[in-house]
Design a protein around this nucleic acid. Structure first.
Lengths: 205, 205
DNA sequence: AGAGCTACAATACTTGTAGTTCTGTCCTTC
DNA sequence: GAAGGACAGAACTACAAGTATTGTAGCTCT
């Protein structure tokens, strides 16, 4: 048996969650953070919403910061799972590129926590971005690259980089929305990806 | 005679700068902002460094914010000029893609003001990004798209979007450096652009 | 074993205030 | 048109007093 050390494995590793109380707490914390931002939420608030004593939260999570990280981790895991599932039943590599991009961009835009912090507490966003951003991108990249390799078994091209470029385009659309590309609906996103991003793939050998 | 209304024209429009005093002030302001950030610099500091009375600055610029915007505008103009010049004597469209990306990314990374604010005053960076980021990207996109069209006179493909994707990849490398792609030296950047980004171009007709 | 509850020290965050700096304008002199 | 001084109002800094929050511990109940 080998030790899993990839970012993907680390981020997608199964969670114990014996009794569902962790889940209740994380749900409450997520709801609070999404509604009020990070700064204005106290552990007490989370406890009240979860219907739990404050001390219980401290028994499960070492401190507020780690609670936040646990919330983020779960959201990241959901995000990655969404990408993984949407690209699982793979047709062509082109299809994987398109669906990976569409789902990735949409899921990121729909992340209430992310957009909340980005818009109402930008000062805490950049730090979080440099703390988690790279790892999340690597994990998502690994998933997509895997899909591409599966779709093109013989092909030895650099799928990692192709996948990362996809993701970086999505990231920049998220962070700098006011460019020439609007990409509003799912249809627009898909059309753009199909028309332009599939070109990143070399024609199959 | 037609009115120029493109972002490019607006940003690249010639500056009067009658006497060179504006330049002295802008030089001083740039140096101060690069060294100490935006918050810690007073107009007095700028005046001292420029060897000018503080009131003079207020005669030339309406307020501190507008002085900052003038500094940024000049830097943006330099940035765009660098891209425009580096891609002027165009060979193939592929060459334009590669050089545009290399010069754009390097120039952005070497912008002392940008990196200064990004790292030491992130809270003021995101607002600036949404204020100016889109326009700058549009202007740079127009320049690059123009180069591509010139290199492929008959070709009717969507060069605007190709150019924008290039730029967005560069932006994301700037904002999220800790991914799988390091792209440290000029050679690495160029190799990446040549290998992957030129694929965004459709083969010539 | 683990949640609830109370209590508690330490820390962090508000509030109000006084003092200082900075901004932006005006006016006079050169 | 620039320099320089002078000035009111705004913004920032420092600091003290009060309040809220954090994180820990002990005890009870199941």
């Amino acid at each position: 048996m080998t030790m899993d050390t990839t970012p993907l494995a680390g981020l997608l590793a199964a969670v114990p969650d014996t009794d569902g109380l962790d889940t209740r707490i994380l749900d409450a914390a997520l709801a609070e953070f999404e509604t009020y931002g990070l700064r204005r939420v106290s552990v007490e608030d989370v406890a009240k919403r979860a219907g739990v004593a404050r001390t219980t939260i401290y028994r499960r999570f070492t401190n507020k910061e780690q609670l936040l990280q646990a919330v983020i981790l779960r959201e990241v895991r959901r995000f990655l799972t969404a990408i993984a599932e949407a690209t699982e039943r793979l047709g062509s590599a082109e299809e994987a590129v398109v669906e990976g991009f569409v789902v990735g961009l949409q899921a990121a835009r729909d992340q209430a926590l992310l957009t909340r912090v980005l818009h109402s507490e930008p000062e805490s966003f950049l730090p979080q971005l440099s703390m988690n951003g790279g790892a999340v991108m690597l994990a998502a990249r690994d998933i997509l690259a895997d899909r591409l390799r599966r779709a093109r078994p013989g092909d030895r091209q650099d799928f990692d980089t192709v996948a990362e470029v996809l993701l970086r385009v999505a990231v920049s659309l998220l962070l700098v929305p006011d460019g020439g590309l609007r990409l509003d609906g799912e249809d627009e996103i898909r059309a753009f990806a199909r028309e332009h991003l599939t070109r990143l793939l070399r024609p199959s050998p």
